Computed example of a mutant assay.
Amino acid sequence: MPTLSEALDVGGDSVVVAVGAGGKKTLVYSLADDLPDAVVTATVKTPKFGGKVERTVLTDDPVSAAREATERPLGLARDGDRSDRYLGYDPAVVDDLAESGATPLLVKGDGARTRLLKAPKEGEPPIPSAATVVTPLASVRVVGHPLTEEAVHRPKRVAELTDLAAGNDIRPKHVADVLAHPDGGLKNIPDGADAVPVVNMADTDETVETAREIAERVLERAPSVPRVLVTRLIHDDPVVDVVTRD
């Protein structure tokens, strides 16, 4: 299997934005392992980077900080209002960071409160226009759960994007409906950016097959999507499959 960066077709000048639910931070950090010159940041509140980067700089001027800091991967954020979180930047600031040459740039662009599936509300997700690849995520483990707040962030929005009623069990088609919907996983993706959905947490034979079913359904619903990744992002070999139309 290819590495994660190979499967996403990202490299030195890429701006990758992770949205959705079920592994955004892990995807960003996995890419940072592949791309050691990376800069890691966010457009939303994010847990502290910790040992996932070589150095963290908390600043309102990330462009200057990226120019001055030599350590990579470099984490950039603003000081948070809680001891365990940083604040992200406005998407326009991230655009400036990308224009300055601080790439590859890896961006957490959504929040989901550790849930397994999400549909965005109005104004979400805050994706910078410089994005070259956007990765809408969902966890295959959400299949079989009822549509409630325990497993899903914004379940009312998920119900609006699918034919699923509150409290009913989530099936593969419902996950695909969310990932492939222009007001779901494909929302706010800039012109020219590739949308590559990721179905994560496929770490058993059963979940791999379910994730592949979700991926195939996404490709049926969204002609603009070139491929869907099936992943187990916490593993050393995170890419399980790359599902295409061929």
Rank of each mutant, 00 (worst) to 15 (best):
K118P: 02
L186P: 02
D205R: 12
G75F: 04
V199R: 11
G80R: 04
L87Y: 09
P36G: 13
S14I: 13
A92M: 08
A112N: 00
A32R: 09
E122F: 03
G123W: 12
G20V: 10
V175E: 04
K45P: 07
R217I: 13
A195P: 09
H174E: 14
L219P: 01
K24L: 07
T59H: 02
G20F: 09
K118W: 01
A151P: 06
E99I: 01
I127F: 06
V10P: 06
V242P: 00
S139N: 12
D37C: 07
L229M: 13
A65P: 01
A130D: 05
V228D: 11
P120R: 03
T204A: 12
L186A: 03
E124P: 02
V15I: 11
P120G: 07
R55M: 10
R85S: 15
V15E: 05
A65Y: 02
T207F: 09
E71R: 07
K173I: 14
G111E: 09
R154W: 02
D169H: 13
G101R: 01
R157W: 00
T46S: 12
K52V: 13
E68F: 00
R78I: 07
K45H: 14
R115Y: 11
G109Q: 01
V142W: 10
R67S: 09
T207M: 10
A130F: 03
P36D: 15
R221G: 06
V17P: 09
T46R: 06
D237G: 06
R141M: 14
A176I: 15
A130P: 05
G12H: 13
L4N: 03
L186W: 04
V242D: 02
A176D: 11
E209I: 07
T114G: 04
Y89A: 04
L35T: 08
P226Q: 11
P73A: 05
K121R: 15
R72G: 05
G111D: 06
P47G: 10
E71V: 07
A32I: 15
V134A: 05
E68Y: 01
T204M: 13
S5T: 14
D163S: 15
I234H: 15
A165W: 08
D163N: 14
V198G: 12
A92C: 06
R171G: 12
L4Q: 04
T207S: 15
P182Q: 09
T210K: 13
R55Y: 07
R141P: 08
P172G: 08
S139E: 11
I170Y: 05
L233S: 06
T132R: 12
T244D: 10
G51L: 07
A92E: 15
D177N: 13
D9W: 03
P62S: 03
V208A: 08
V158G: 00
H145K: 15
G50M: 10
D237P: 00
A131K: 05
I170A: 01
Y89M: 09
E124M: 05
P2S: 10
V53S: 02
T103I: 05
D13T: 15
R227P: 06
P223M: 10
